[in-house]
């Protein structure tokens, strides 16, 4: 009887969990990460995923000249501070939040339009529980309205 119960719960989790976990990411991005962009205006794009400790993500985006941008990279509270780097096409690191006390945001402006890469990592950290921690990580962009 107990086995049947566990099996039923497992099937239900497998069926329903992807949607519920992702829904948490949407809510997390909207309610937690988006506020970090203020006073910059969120561009409306949605980039969020469940990441596990040690996992990495990359985002490719063209940034346009003479536009003021803010990038916000946020992780769920159960994750360690999220590390992110902004890298150019010559693989030069233009910014690393590791050198800035794991700041969640970075403001920048380009003199010439460029395609840049945002590298994101959930670092392994001491003191974390033995279970593999995973949670939402969102990457969001805002810009300033000049008019």
């Amino acid at each position: 009887m107990k086995k049947i119960f566990h099996f039923t719960v497992a099937i239900a989790l497998l069926t329903l969990l992807p949607l519920s976990v992702n829904a948490q990411c949407k809510g997390f991005a909207k309610k937690i990460c988006k506020v970090e962009l203020s006073p910059y205006i969120h561009d409306g794009n949605y980039h969020a995923a469940i990441l596990t400790v040690g996992e990495e993500a990359e985002l490719y985006k063209t940034f346009y000249s003479d536009t003021d941008y803010r990038i916000a990279v946020c992780g769920s509270v159960n994750l360690p501070d999220i590390e992110f780097r902004v890298i150019d096409s010559d693989r030069n690191v233009l910014y690393s939040n590791k050198d800035n006390e794991y700041a969640m945001t970075w403001n920048f402006r380009l003199e010439a339009s460029q395609q840049l890469k945002v590298f994101v990592k959930v670092p392994t950290a001491e003191g974390l529980p033995e279970e593999i921690a995973s949670g939402c990580v969102a990457i969001m962009f805002g810009f300033l309205d000049k008019n």
């Binding site: 561009d43 993500a57 490719y60």
Partner: peptide, 19 residues
């Protein structure tokens, strides 16, 4: 963008962001 995109295979999650 050849340089910037050639590291793609080593990453687990890839986002392509359009304006």
């Amino acid at each position: 963008s050849a340089g910037i995109l050639e590291d793609v295979n080593s990453a687990k999650q890839i986002f392509y962001s359009l304006p």
